[in-house]
Design a protein around this nucleic acid. Sequence first.
DNA 1: TAGGCCATCTGGTCCT
DNA 2: AGGACCAGATGGCCTA
Length: 227
Amino acid sequence: MNASEENLLKSISNDTLLDLTQRYGQSAFGFGAGHGTGSPGRFPLTPATDFHSGQTAKSNESGGEHTSDDEDGFDSLDSRKRGSSFGDDKPGGGLAKKSKEQRSLRLSINARERRRMHDLNDALDGLRAVIPYAHSPSVRKLSKIATLLLAKNYILMQAQALEEMRRLVAYLNQGQNITSPIPTALAPFGQAAVYPFSGSALSTCAEKCTTYSGTPSTLFKHCNDKP
DNA sequence: TAGGCCATCTGGTCCT
DNA sequence: AGGACCAGATGGCCTA
């Protein structure tokens, strides 16, 4: 992890929304500031030499098509890594000594797992697209962990802002004039600021997922709630 | 060159 | 039984 990213994570982990807000205000979530200015960063990954054939294979970077993965996985695999025991002759490892049936099953499972991880990465890309940081080609893409932590705090910050707006509206609706700056009575913030869904009319997990994800519902099979 | 990040494979577990 | 999910292992790429 580079220094800039490290600093970001430090600032995220302490839950200081004020600090986070200041960073947003400065649009300081581009990691390119401290390093690699003018450098395109490490993404997208450059094509690598195929492990077996020596041919150049396109990276399976998330967002790419998942078409060829479905066959049996082998020929269309990302060339980065074939796994620890793939084709390995060591005892107990690899598919070489397994039956054709077992091998076929293993390849099928691998392809499924690959697809699953691609879906996960697609979702992470979607998350990166909506959280505020510099989306510039010269800026390094957020790492997975940074994306998740930043998203979490962004949600908290938005919830806090929403709660503040609600209080302000309520205050104004009482017919009181605001002669001084923002009333200090608006703080501290209630629980609703911490749990965005706590006051929501949406009661089931499925409803929340449908409303807030914008993602195909098939990706939310965790929802046990019946709408 | 070390460390961070990543994709992939793999075997285990749980669920439908 | 088959699929989803998970965590560990492995090795490639990139940056400081």
